[in-house]
Amino acid sequence: MAQREGGGLRADAAQNKERLLAAAREVFAEQGLGVSMRQVARHAGVSEPTLRRRFASREALIAEAFEDKVVLYAEAAEAALGDLDPWVGFTSFLRQMASMQLVDRGFAEMLTMTFPASMRYEQGRRRAWDAIQRLIERAKTAGRLREDFVAEDIVLLLLAHAGVVAGSGRLAERFSARLLGYLLQAFAAPGAVSLPPAPSVAETYRALLRLHDNDPA
């Protein structure tokens, strides 16, 4: 009889699941989250029905594949709060997010999705969002971040950065550094030109959802 790991999945079943997750992480990193379950199954060397027996939907697969990374995202935001210089903490966090995005095309897309079935994922993302709000307030209080900056502007940065990464190939790292340089100058106080009103949280969320509406299932 096959052994069970801590009363959970049998050892061979757990290994098979991890193999599927590893394949999904590779495909998502290289191509983003628009890939189909069939493409993930092909990369893992299994049939699509086999993949779907373990993960009922692509959302369930994405949630488990990115659980560890969203925890790192939260930890990075919390670690940035420990910097004595609020502006350095804020900008170093944004640079770290951009670096993560350079090696994983699915990263920014993953941050715009919700996975109510994955409590670990959602808890990690809420931790990160709370820390980001505090990073923003610290930088504003220090007089280094423009007063009209909002957390949704970080989503804007990541989406813009994703386009640059996707379109610049081998020069992605250099283009990334240039874009971040411009954006961080724009974010800095006092802000040379007033910005148009920012979209609301609900409007931002609806716009992000539309990015996934046409993705293959």
Rank of each mutant, 00 (worst) to 15 (best):
A166C: 03
R120H: 08
L180Q: 11
R95G: 11
D130R: 11
L111W: 03
P116Q: 00
A139T: 05
G167C: 01
D104N: 14
M110Q: 08
L102V: 05
L158T: 13
G169Y: 05
A142G: 07
Y121P: 00
A160I: 04
R134Q: 12
L184H: 03
F93Y: 15
R134V: 04
V164I: 13
G143K: 00
A160F: 08
L158N: 07
D130H: 07
F115M: 09
R174K: 12
V103R: 13
A172R: 15
I132N: 06
K140E: 03
G167E: 04
K140I: 03
Q133Y: 06
G167Q: 05
R105K: 14
Y121L: 12
L94D: 08
M110W: 03
R127F: 00
E122G: 06
T141C: 01
L159T: 09
R174E: 14
V103K: 09
Q185I: 01
A188V: 07
V164N: 02
E122C: 11
A166N: 11
Q185G: 10
Q96H: 14
S118D: 11
F149N: 09
L102T: 03
D148P: 08
E152L: 05
E137M: 10
E109C: 02
R125L: 13
G169K: 03
T112C: 13
D153Y: 10
Q185Y: 02
L102F: 04
A162I: 02
A98S: 15
G167Y: 00
A188I: 05
L111V: 00
G169A: 08
F115K: 02
E137I: 06
L184Q: 12
S168V: 00
T112N: 10
A162L: 15
L158R: 11
R174P: 03
A131C: 02
H161V: 02
E137L: 13
L156I: 01
A98I: 12
A128C: 09
L184I: 13
